[in-house]
């Protein structure tokens, strides 16, 4: 989504929200997500994915859109937290297949990372699986009744 479309969508959401309603922005953020081998014996990092420029640009556009609607006084930030969201596969090949089909626009699995992951997985316990640790961001915004610059009491809600 382009920046202008994001701002327009946030305005549409604001229209449908009740005064002092809550907007949750929940999304992954590019951060060279780590690839890990996990088994009953524990887990270890086998490498990191490479962020694709288009994905980084999408993140930047989303952050800019939120900054813009905050500066317009449409929403005010209440709370924010990072957390991990894991994708698991039984084998490195299944992980690779998925990434090539689904993630080509924002993350890339380099060949050397795939080789190292395959090697570590093959030598790990029989129950070993592969996973990617996706960095997630959740932000809680309050929809201002009129304009947040004149509506500061929502800070204490």
């Amino acid at each position: 989504m382009q920046h202008e479309s994001m701002v327009h969508a946030l305005d549409e959401i604001r229209r449908t929200l009740k005064p002092n309603g809550i907007l949750i922005d929940l999304r992954p953020v590019e951060d060279n997500w780590s690839v890990e081998i996990v088994s009953s014996a524990g887990w270890q990092v086998s490498g990191r994915l490479s962020d694709v420029p288009a994905g980084v640009a999408d993140d930047e556009a989303a952050f800019n859109a939120m900054r813009e609607v905050e500066s317009k006084g449409w929403y005010i930030k209440k709370e924010e937290e990072e957390f991990a969201f894991f994708y698991y596969w039984d084998t490195p090949s299944e992980m690779k297949e998925f990434m090539e089909a689904e993630w080509e626009d924002f993350e890339k699995l380099e060949e050397d990372v795939f080789r190292k992951t395959s090697s570590l997985w093959a030598s790990a316990n029989a129950d070993a699986r592969v996973r990617v640790r996706v960095k997630m961001l959740i932000t809680k915004w309050i929809r201002c009744r009129s304009n947040c610059q004149f509506d500061l009491h929502v800070l204490i809600i």
Partner: peptide
């Protein structure tokens, strides 16, 4: 689409952008 949300104003208490911004 989020460009035109087909609901009346001030209908919802919470909106969640689900991996979509």
């Amino acid at each position: 689409s989020a460009s035109h949300i087909p609901f009346s104003k001030e209908t919802f208490d919470i909106a969640i952008l689900a991996w979509s911004l």
